[in-house]
Nucleic acid binder design. Structure first.
Lengths: 208, 208
DNA sequence: TAGATTGTTAATCGATTAACAATC
DNA sequence: TAGATTGTTAATCGATTAACAATC
C-alpha cells in the first residue's frame, strides 16, 4: 500500500459500491474487464489499482467478490462506525443531520453546532449544541472529522476553532476556499461552482 | 480558447472569485505571483492558464483586475442568469431550492419537481410541480441544467427522462454513479463518499 | 538603464494505457 | 493443450513546473 492519490481512492470507493451491487446479484467472482466497464475505465487501470493495494486475483479466474469487498472495507475503514459532527445547522447542515445515506454507509452524525439559540436542542436524538461547546465535545468524543456548513462571514473563525480543537478533516461547504495543511485535510464542496462549470462546458459544446 | 480540462475550469472559477475579493479591497492590478499564492498553485500555472484563454497582461505591470473579471465572466457565462431546475424535493433538494449562494452567483432555480403530492406547490414563488410536467416545462423554458436529488430507486428512470427532455447537464446527488454522454454532461456529488475518503486519508497519515 | 514580470517553450512529473510474459 | 486472465513493465499521454527570452 503505497501511493494513493485522491482519484485513486475515489475509485476504490467506486469499486466497493459496484462490488456490493454485484454481490446482491449473486456474483461470486469478477474480472478486471467487468469492473472497468462498470466504472468506465480500462481494465488495466483496475488491475493496476488492485496490485497497488495488494488485492490479489487468480490468473484465470478473476477476483473473488467477497474477498475484494472485505479488503476494501478494511482499506476504507468501513469496519468501524465513522463519527462526524456538523458545524452550522442552517438549511444544508440540517438536511445533512438526518441524511439517511450516512447511516447506510456507516457514518454517524453525533452532534450539530450552531450559535442561533432557536435551533439549539441538546436533548434531540442528534443533539444540536451551542458552538461554545465545540472544543470540549470534540475532545470528549474523539471527533476527527467535521462538516462545515456555516455562512461565509464566520467561516474563518470557525475553521480556526476546528483546527485548534484537533479536527483532522473538514468537508467544507462554505464558499471560503480552504487548503489542506499538515494537521487538517480539507475537501471543498462548492455547489454553485459545479453548476457554473457545467454551464461552461455545455456552452463550449454548443459553440463548437 | 482551446483545451479545457475540468480542473482548469475550476481554476478559472477560483481566479474569478479571488479577483472579485481583491477588487473589493481596492486592487487595480495583480501579478501571477499573487494569484498563485492565493490559490496555492504556481505562478507558471496561472500564466499558462491565462495565455490559454487569451487573458493578456503587461510585461511589467501584471494584469488588470477589472479586465480579468470581465473576461472571466464572459468565459464562464456569468453575464446571463443561469436557470436550473431541481428534480426531487426531499431534504437536500428543498435546501437547495432556496440556496442564497445560487442567487448571489446568478443562478436561478426556476422550479422543483417531485411525485409526492404533499410537497407540490404550483403557486409558490419557486413552484414545485408534479414530475409529470417535467418534459413540457423543460421545453417551454429552455432549461438546460438540472440538479438531481431523488432517492436511489427512481434515479434511473428520472435520469432517462431528463436526458430525453433535452437536459444537457446534470448535477447528480443520487448514489447512482452516472457517466457523461455526448448529449448530457454529468457532475456527480457524493457526500458520503467524500467523508469516506477523508477518513481514508487521515487514517493513512496516522498510520505512517 | 536595471529590475521585474509576462508569455512561451522545454523539462519534469504523475497518472493512464498498452503490451505481454506468467500461469491457471 | 489452448484459451483466458492476471500482474507488471514499458510506452504514452496530459498536466504542471522550470527556465528564460522578450519587453515594459
Amino acid at each position: 500500500m503505497r501511493e494513493s492519490s485522491r482519484s485513486m481512492v475515489e475509485r476504490l470507493s467506486s469499486y466497493r459500491s459496484v462490488l456490493c451491487k454485484l454481490k446482491t446479484l449473486g456474483f461470486v467472482k469478477v474480472f478486471s474487464d467487468n469492473l472497468g466497464d462498470a466504472l468506465g475505465i480500462s481494465a488495466s487501470q483496475v488491475r493496476k489499482d488492485f496490485s497497488q493495494f495488494e488485492l490479489k486475483g487468480n490468473k484465470k479466474g478473476g477476483y473473488q467478490v467477497d474477498e475484494l469487498i472485505e479488503r476494501l472495507n478494511e482499506i476504507l475503514g468501513k469496519n468501524e462506525v465513522q463519527d462526524i459532527i456538523i458545524v452550522g445547522c442552517g438549511k444544508i447542515g440540517t438536511a445533512l443531520m438526518n441524511y439517511n445515506r450516512f447511516t447506510s454507509e456507516g457514518i454517524r452524525v453525533v452532534a450539530g453546532f450552531d450559535t442561533d439559540p432557536t435551533v439549539i436542542r441538546p436533548d434531540a436524538r442528534i443533539p444540536v449544541l451551542d458552538l461554545s461547546e465545540l472544543e470540549s465535545f470534540v475532545e470528549r468524543h474523539g471527533i476527527r472529522i467535521a462538516i462545515m456548513t456555516v455562512p461565509e462571514p464566520p467561516a474563518p473563525q470557525v475553521y480556526e476553532r476546528l483546527v485548534n480543537a484537533g479536527i483532522e478533516g473538514i468537508l467544507n461547504f462554505t464558499p471560503m476556499q480552504l487548503r489542506s495543511s499538515g494537521s487538517c485535510l480539507i475537501q471543498n464542496v462548492n455547489i454553485e461552482r459545479e453548476i457554473e462549470n457545467l454551464f461552461y462546458f455545455i456552452n463550449l459544446q454548443n459553440r463548437e
